[in-house]
Amino acid sequence: MIKELLISEFLQEAENTRKVLEAIPDSALGWKSSEKTWSTAKLASHVATIYAWYPEVLLSDAFELSDFKYERENHSASKNILQKFEENFSLAKEAFEKLDENKLSTPWTMTMKEKVLIPPTPKYNIIRTTLFNHLYHHRGELIVYLRATGNKVPGFYGPTADDKF
């Protein structure tokens, strides 16, 4: 039951992620809100890459971040970022289908070169925070980037200021 609820949210929110990535024009890819932030391209690429983490979280009990191989797309064009999202989304969906619901309370850990980044935490909590909420946070940043660059913002949970009533 819980697995089905998680998958339902995952699928709905992946569609929202797809909408925001489709809304990014190539002309906005180089824009940064400050010297400390990523460009739109790097932020969008990060959003697309989060979906590649799903198999590591859903199908294992630990994630050694230094072993994770980032497959960076050429983010000089929005279509490349969207293509990487679609590839990673497929991996994530497949991992969700294989997830054993009985393991949602199993402790899960993230390390980097043996340093503990996330101590043992129930897998369910990691799905909610490290996967879902982390993604929503960065997707929200992308929405701000779209607005700041004068581009239209897609609606996720209803119309936006760009929609005509």
Rank of each mutant, 00 (worst) to 15 (best):
M1S: 10
E4M: 13
L5V: 14
L5E: 11
F10V: 05
L11D: 07
Q12M: 10
E13F: 08
E13D: 01
N16K: 10
N16A: 13
N16H: 12
T17A: 03
T17P: 02
V20W: 05
V20N: 10
A23V: 06
P25Q: 10
D26R: 02
L29K: 03
W31F: 15
K32L: 00
K32I: 08
S34V: 06
K36G: 12
K36T: 15
T37Y: 09
T40W: 02
T40V: 08
H46I: 02
V47C: 07
V47P: 08
V47D: 01
T49N: 14
I50P: 00
P55A: 01
E56P: 06
V57Q: 07
L58T: 05
L59T: 05
D61R: 09
F63C: 14
L65S: 08
L65F: 15
D67P: 07
F68G: 05
Y70Q: 14
E71Y: 00
E71C: 02
R72N: 11
E73N: 08
N74T: 04
H75F: 12
K79G: 03
N80W: 00
I81P: 00
Q83H: 12
Q83E: 13
K84G: 00
F89S: 00
S90M: 10
S90L: 13
L91F: 03
K93A: 14
A95C: 02
E97L: 07
K98T: 09
N102Y: 12
N102A: 15
K103S: 13
K103I: 11
K103A: 03
K103D: 01
L104W: 04
S105W: 12
T106I: 05
P107C: 02
P107W: 09
P107N: 10
W108V: 00
T109D: 10
M110V: 11
M110Y: 04
M112G: 03
M112Q: 14
K113Q: 08
K115C: 02
V116Y: 01
L117M: 13
I118H: 10
Y124R: 10
Y124A: 14
Y124Q: 14
R128D: 09
R128C: 12
T130Q: 15
T130Y: 13
L131H: 12
H134Q: 01
H134W: 02
L135P: 02
Y136M: 15
H137F: 15
H137T: 07
H138C: 00
R139V: 05
G140I: 04
L142D: 01
Y145Q: 06
Y145H: 03
L146C: 09
R147Q: 06
R147H: 07
R147C: 04
A148S: 11
A148K: 15
K152C: 04
V153I: 15
P154V: 09
G155H: 02
G155T: 12
P159E: 11
P159Y: 06
P159N: 04
A161W: 10
A161E: 08
K164G: 09
F165Y: 15
